[in-house]
Simulated scan of single mutants.
Amino acid sequence: MSHPDKTNLATPDIENVNIVDFDPMPSPEEIHARVPLSAQASRTVMQGREALRNILDRKDHRLFIVVGPCSIHDPVAGLDYARRLKALGDELGDTLLPIMRVYFEKPRTTTGWKGYINDPDMDDSFHIGKGMENARAFLRDVAELGLPAATEALDPISPQYLGDLIAWTAIGARTTESQTHREMSSGLSTPVGFKNGTNGDVGIAVNAILSASRPHSFLGINGEGKTAVVRTSGNPYGHLVLRGGDGRPNYDTVSVRIAEQALTKAKLPANIVVDCSHANSYKNHELQPLVMADIVNQIRFGNQSLVGVMIESNIVAGNQPIPNDLASLKYGCSVTDACVDWDTTEKMLRETAAQLRDVLPNRTRQS
């Protein structure tokens, strides 16, 4: 009886069944070499981080403001915005610490544009290497203006490429519960704000702060782009960001007090940031000034835990769909969540500074 030639038998695929290709990606060291950190940019980042740590430690009485576009898609308009914010920050710097919101990665519930890193040409071509290099160049340019930057850490590999240019990091509502992001946060060099869950659950963020404060060991990459076991010492500057949930706000005095109690029970500092956007404004950008005004009033009437706010802001109000012809994009207008315009932003920050200038220095130091 003859046996079939086993070399001719079809072998079912075992791995990478749904992988189309593995495109090479420049290593973090290569991207750093192409877009090096200048001395001025380094000073901006270090000073921004120190100021934020001092605010969280109650050594600096100022309120920090993470403000800027929902996402960056046009670096020219982004730098235009940055220059305006830098000038305003210089004027109000005795009371407020503006940190520019520079978001390159957008989490998606289903589909949609995933951000400037993933798809810098906004045409589903996904030139991620180009996007990463361009993103680093933009952050460097912002830092060289003397303006610190904030971002959301979504992809756990991105901080190796961009982390030296970031002063404050957010972990979003969709990823606060993720063990991967808690581990990553434990090694980040910045203070990290953890948002409550999309359902409004503050306990998820409290657990994340605790987890990130501990040492971890996990898989990642090193500067050469090689797989490595990353070992961290823990991040002592995690704090809570209230962004509402289940379509309802949670910045009111009762919600803030409940959040304070949850932090105290976990033996964590009562450091709370309020995101004026998302569910806190019912996803209506025009309501963000009202949220901000409420936070200011809470501080004026004695609140001790509110240390920062987040605002989605751009040059032009609202948002726009991404057109087939990118030349028809409206300058300075968001392509993701709707934002308040620059004039509104300026008014919000000026009014906040005016109302808090004599209040913040007299706040009671937290124990």
Rank of each mutant, 00 (worst) to 15 (best):
H3Y: 12
P4N: 09
T7N: 15
L9R: 14
L9Q: 13
A10F: 12
P12Q: 12
I19F: 06
D21S: 14
D21V: 15
D23S: 09
P24D: 02
P26L: 11
V35K: 04
S38A: 05
S38H: 08
S42L: 13
V45C: 10
Q47T: 14
I55T: 04
L56N: 03
G68L: 08
P69E: 09
P69H: 12
D74Y: 11
D74S: 13
V76H: 13
R83A: 07
R84C: 04
E91I: 05
L92P: 04
L92T: 05
L96V: 07
L97E: 01
P98Q: 09
F104K: 15
E105W: 12
E105A: 04
E105V: 09
K106A: 02
G115Y: 08
G115H: 10
Y116F: 15
Y116G: 04
D123E: 11
D124K: 13
G131N: 13
N134A: 07
F138C: 07
D141E: 15
L147G: 02
E152T: 04
A153E: 05
L162D: 00
D164G: 08
T169C: 10
Q179Y: 01
R182H: 01
R182I: 04
M184H: 00
S186R: 10
V192M: 05
V192F: 00
N196K: 13
G197H: 09
V202G: 00
G203C: 04
A205W: 00
V206S: 02
I209R: 09
A212I: 10
I221K: 09
I221Q: 04
N222L: 07
G223E: 11
K226S: 05
K226H: 10
T232F: 03
G234M: 05
L240R: 07
V241Y: 02
L242M: 13
Y251K: 10
D252E: 06
K265F: 01
L268G: 00
L268I: 04
P269F: 03
V273F: 06
V274D: 03
C276D: 02
S277I: 08
S281Q: 10
K283M: 03
E286L: 11
L290E: 08
L290Y: 02
I295H: 01
I295T: 00
V296K: 08
R300K: 15
F301Y: 13
G302D: 05
N303V: 00
I311R: 03
E312N: 08
S313E: 12
A317E: 07
L326S: 01
K330V: 12
G332Y: 00
T336S: 09
T336A: 02
C339R: 12
C339H: 09
D343R: 13
E351H: 08
T352H: 09
L356H: 07
R357A: 11
R357C: 06
D358Q: 14
V359K: 14
L360Y: 05
